[in-house]
Nucleic acid binder design. Structure first.
Length: 266
DNA sequence: GGGTGATGCTGAG
DNA sequence: TCAGCCTCACCCC
């Protein structure tokens, strides 16, 4: 589930539940028992999303760092939660709400300095206020790799994942294998603007939606079907929604990218 | 019930 | 470049 839009949405969802409250913390699975003991009964002061990272600041000055990776998932229950699954790494409970976390790549306690070090390794996050689009452009300009590889590099831009990179490149009309440094200023700016608007749309919608309803026909204007939300991602061999050309599949940076040969000329 | 894939990332070679 | 890690939902029998 998790590209940057999911992470920011989680921060927004968790804030009213946790911030200012004493929280019971446990690790049903046991793999975070030490950390859970330290946090148990403490108060959450602040929750921050940065790219694909979540940071929960506690009054004890500890920072709980969560990275969902490919499989991580939060679940929230009001009132009676079901018993935790075997994979439940972390359970947070306050008032009548319980939050379970399973499958994260990272669930660890950091100092504030260590949190700063994680953030220092990240490029600008288009969902954060004041995010530096010029820094993004400059980072692209320094990369001789394919633009599709650069967009997955969290040092270049924080929060874009495999779905958004394909969709952004489609909407920008840029071939995934063009070298990042060869893009013009307008193209770099277009990518940044698309990243900001599409991630924001995804954060609001709770899922990734990039399609303009006009592109899937009159009758759909009132709402997109669940398989009509994206232009190219996982649509190999199907007709492009804009021009009808068959959507192509290529691997870049070990991940699949789908693209339209007409809309994204090399 | 088994097999598989997934919106991620790291570290070894 | 590639294996490895983490978990669960979905598909097919």
């Amino acid at each position: 589930m998790p590209e940057g839009h999911t992470i920011h949405r989680l921060a927004r969802l968790h804030r009213p539940i946790l911030v200012g409250n004493e929280v019971s913390v446990s690790s049903p699975q046991g793999r975070f028992s030490g950390g859970a003991e330290l946090l148990n009964g403490e108060r959450v002061e602040e929750i921050e999303a940065y790219g694909k990272h979540l940071f929960y600041r506690w009054t004890s000055a500890d920072v709980l760092h969560i990275h969902l990776g490919l499989f991580g998932k939060f679940r929230t229950f009001r009132r009676e939660p079901p018993p935790p699954t075997e994979g439940t790494r972390l359970a947070l409970h306050t008032g009548d709400t319980t939050i379970y976390l399973a499958g994260p790549t990272a669930c660890e306690l950091l100092t504030i300095d260590e949190r700063d070090a994680v953030v220092a390794r990240l490029g600008p996050d288009p969902l954060r206020r004041g995010a530096d689009g010029d820094a993004f452009g400059a980072a692209l300009d320094r990369r001789s790799v394919a633009v599709a590889a650069a967009l997955l590099d969290q040092k270049v831009v924080a929060g874009i994942g495999n779905v958004y990179r394909a969709e952004i490149l489609f909407l920008a009309g840029i071939h995934p294998l063009r070298r990042a440094k060869d893009l013009g200023p307008d193209e770099r700016a277009a990518i940044w603007d698309l990243a900001r608007s599409l991630l924001r749309r995804g954060e609001k919608a709770g899922r990734i939606v990039t399609v303009d309803p006009a592109d899937v026909g009159e009758r759909r204007r009132s709402g997109l079907g669940s398989d009509e939300r994206l232009y190219v991602y996982k649509r190999g061999g199907q007709p492009c929604r804009r021009c009808g050309t068959s959507v192509e599949l290529t691997e870049v940076a070990n991940r699949k990218v789908w693209w339209c040969p007409s809309c994204q000329p090399g």
